[in-house]
Amino acid sequence: MPDIQLIELNVNGESHDLAIPPRRTLADVLRHDLGLTGTHVGCEHGICGACTVLIDGAPARACLTFAVQVEGAEIRTVESLAGPDGAMNDLQQAFTDHHGLQCGFCTPGFLMLAEGYLAEEPEPTREEIREVVASNICRCTGYHTIVDAIEHCARKRRADCASG
């Protein structure tokens, strides 16, 4: 009786064949069917942003997306950021350097938001960063250090790019 959909989902460069009820959100499929629990769920109505992932490079809410909708898309989650040896990437390093996280629950969402945003806009002003950071909710930091971390990461990427 339950309606099951067969889909192929591309996550972090790996392809997964899944048989799922269509009502399963992308957030639940990533977390509970694929075991990628770095993506968190904080409100299930698209406002807190803890579930933010990249869909074809663009930050998007995994709680407002059914997994069946994104067959054929490239999904990226927080698990894709670190190197193969587990070393943090520059954005993650900037978050720890600037104390851009406390409890860490909202953090993967902010990382993926920033990762997607900086890919599109490598030279943002601090005010532009603030406006994008306002997409997600953090209850611990007061946001100041999140903006700091993203600003410094962007600056360092530009410097590395210019010198390299």
């Binding site: 930050p59 809410r61 407002l64 997607g116 945003y117 997409s135």
Partner: peptide, 12 residues
Amino acid sequence: MRWVGHLPIRTR
């Protein structure tokens, strides 16, 4: 468009 929700809403 900058008044419409937030970036991750606007991308979808």
